[in-house]
Amino acid sequence: MSDKDLLIPASQIDSSVINARTRRGRIQMLLLFLACASPVIASYFAYYVIKPEGGKTNFGTLVYPAQDFNTAWLDTPMQGKWTLLIARPAGECQIKDEKCIEALFLMRQVRVAMGRQSKRLQLIWVNTDDKPVDPEVSKVYDEKIAGLKIVSLPSDSKSWAEFESWLNKDGAGKEIQLIDPSPAKMMYFPVTNSPKEFSSMKKDLEKLLKLNHKGENL
């Protein structure tokens, strides 16, 4: 507004000028919002509107709205990373325990199968009983060999209860949970030993990482 405009009563200012300025401000705010939210919107749009494989449903179960993850729950970086997370008691997760080993094997193999994209995906096993991990399991599924980071539950009871509630929401406590870089749970996968379902899980992850460029580097 010029000095001349300041001398004119507000009631006499052309209403069209005010409306134009208001519209401009709203458009700028909308563009800013879309720029910030576009990666997440693209991910969900692709799965809710542009269905993978010509209209077939994807293998994983979408979580909508996404369930926020509190980074204070676990002593490991989560912000800005794509994460596959599973929670199992180390005391029960022995080599002879097929269900637990299948879950660890599936996470490891999916990450390996993603090739160059694998560097954008971290694997986390939350040890829910804080017992020592079976040495035989560590040999094959540790961080150095398999890229699988083993972390403990939150130390204080409040955080532990919050994490457990988040983990088990919608009955997903035993599933493999996908956490986006925001971080928030946006999908979970059943544990499977089916080659076809393995391929479908890999395709889900590849599509999401292709559409959402956040979390480029671990």
Rank of each mutant, 00 (worst) to 15 (best):
I13S: 04
A72Q: 13
D14H: 14
S11H: 05
L74C: 06
Y47I: 03
T76Y: 12
P52K: 10
I41A: 07
A20N: 10
K99L: 09
E102D: 10
Q67E: 11
K99A: 12
L121Y: 05
Q28W: 00
A37M: 00
V63W: 11
I95E: 12
A20L: 12
Q117G: 00
Q12T: 04
R26P: 00
L31C: 05
M114L: 12
P52I: 10
R116T: 08
I86V: 14
R26F: 07
T71V: 14
F45I: 06
K81T: 13
G60F: 07
P77Q: 14
I18Y: 01
A90K: 07
K119W: 05
E102H: 07
R21D: 03
Y47E: 11
I13Y: 03
M29Y: 01
K56S: 14
A42P: 00
Y48W: 11
L84Q: 08
G91H: 13
R120D: 00
A46C: 02
L123V: 09
N127T: 06
P39H: 05
V110I: 15
T83G: 11
F59I: 08
G25W: 09
E98D: 11
V40A: 01
D68T: 09
V110Y: 05
L121D: 02
W82E: 13
Q79Y: 15
A37S: 01
G54D: 11
R108P: 07
N127M: 04
A46K: 01
F69Q: 06
G25C: 06
Q79W: 15
R120Q: 05
L123S: 09
V17K: 12
M114D: 02
V126T: 06
P65W: 03
N127L: 04
I86P: 01
Q122V: 15
A113H: 04
I86N: 09
